[in-house]
Amino acid sequence: MTADRITPGPVVFGEVLFDCFPDRRVLGGAPFNVAWNLHGLGQAPLFVGAVGDDDNGAEVRRTVSAWGMDMSGLQQDPLHPTGTVQVRIENDEPSYEIVPDQAYDHIAREPALKAVAGREQAILYHGSLALRHHQSRHTLLALREHLRARVFLDVNLRAPWWDVESVHALMHGATWVKLNEQELDALVKDDGEGLESKARHCLERFGLQALIVTRAAEGALVVSREGRVLSRSAPPVDGLVDTVGAGDAFSAVTLMGLMHGWDWEEILDRAAGFAAKVCTLRGATSQEKGFYRW
């Protein structure tokens, strides 16, 4: 699936890192995966993040350059290492240690503002993990103010790097928010309400245009400002390998749909279909350009 490119493409802000398994390293980070997929889909994103002045950072730059992505927003931090997440497998279940004080925690304001020049009408996408440190948070807030952009917030709660108040603050001023069902439960007080009622409450409280709730194998639900509630079941996956990156794939196509003015039925259908396709990969992204033509 490709579409005519819209200029300017979205600004994608946040972490790029390596997931370090016992037997391999995998390049990722939710915002980076979203930007990678958007580029594969022909949408000319600008990724704004940071790597260290180290071997991992050099590898990120080589990989991004080979993929043809715009690297003008990728900063090099001489004081902090390229991000890593240590993944351990115990009883066939992974556990994660998100290492603190990484380069993506220190995305600098002035280079970021310089990089986004000319993209004042772009959608601004960001998550929540990279905002755990004040420097990246202040840079993100400066971008929000400078761009006066429509904001797509992709909530990703990772203990212990979040609290309700800080996430609620990010939701204020967002245009669209995407989160999963467990994250909605964590962020909205449970008064015995059902999923749809919680979603409506969240939409109204934060003045959103739409709230998107992903539900793993049960698909996704969207509540819009116009009062519409739409749901989409997850399509079957032929050749399932793993579900790593499915949510990031869903976000990328949702952004693409918002850029192109698709209605929510089309967005849900295409986003769920692409997420299912990513589940046939080992990992979150592909370096095969043909994978993105469907």
Rank of each mutant, 00 (worst) to 15 (best):
S95K: 11
Y96M: 10
A112K: 05
V26L: 12
D53F: 03
V85C: 11
E93I: 00
G83R: 06
H80A: 05
L113I: 01
Q43K: 09
N37M: 14
A103R: 08
L79T: 12
A44P: 00
G14S: 09
L17H: 04
V48H: 01
D70M: 13
S65M: 12
A117W: 01
P78Y: 08
M69L: 14
I6D: 00
G52V: 07
S95I: 07
Q86R: 13
K114S: 13
C20A: 13
V64R: 07
L46R: 01
V16S: 05
G42A: 02
G29Q: 02
G73F: 02
A58V: 08
L17P: 10
P8I: 08
R62M: 08
V34M: 05
E110L: 14
G42D: 09
S72M: 08
A35M: 07
H106L: 11
V99A: 04
V12T: 11
G73V: 06
G73R: 03
V60D: 06
R109S: 09
G73N: 02
R109A: 05
L46Q: 03
V87I: 13
L17V: 12
G52I: 05
I98M: 12
R5P: 11
P94E: 02
F21M: 03
Y96R: 09
Q75L: 04
V87M: 04
A112T: 11
V85A: 11
G83Q: 02
Q75V: 03
R62L: 14
Q86I: 13
Y104Q: 04
D55W: 05
P45S: 11
H39V: 05
G68K: 08
P45R: 07
A108S: 14
G83A: 07
S72A: 14
E93K: 00
N56E: 14
R24Q: 12
E97H: 15
E110F: 07
L17F: 10
P31W: 05
R109H: 06
D92F: 00
C20Y: 00
F18L: 05
A50E: 02
R62D: 13
C20L: 15
I98A: 09
E93R: 00
V64Q: 08
I89T: 00
F21D: 00
H39T: 07
D55C: 04
L74G: 01
V85F: 01
P78I: 09
P10M: 05
F32Y: 15
Q76R: 15
D92H: 02
G52C: 01
G49H: 04
W36Y: 07
A103C: 13
D105F: 00
T84D: 02
E110R: 13
V26W: 00
G83I: 07
A103K: 10
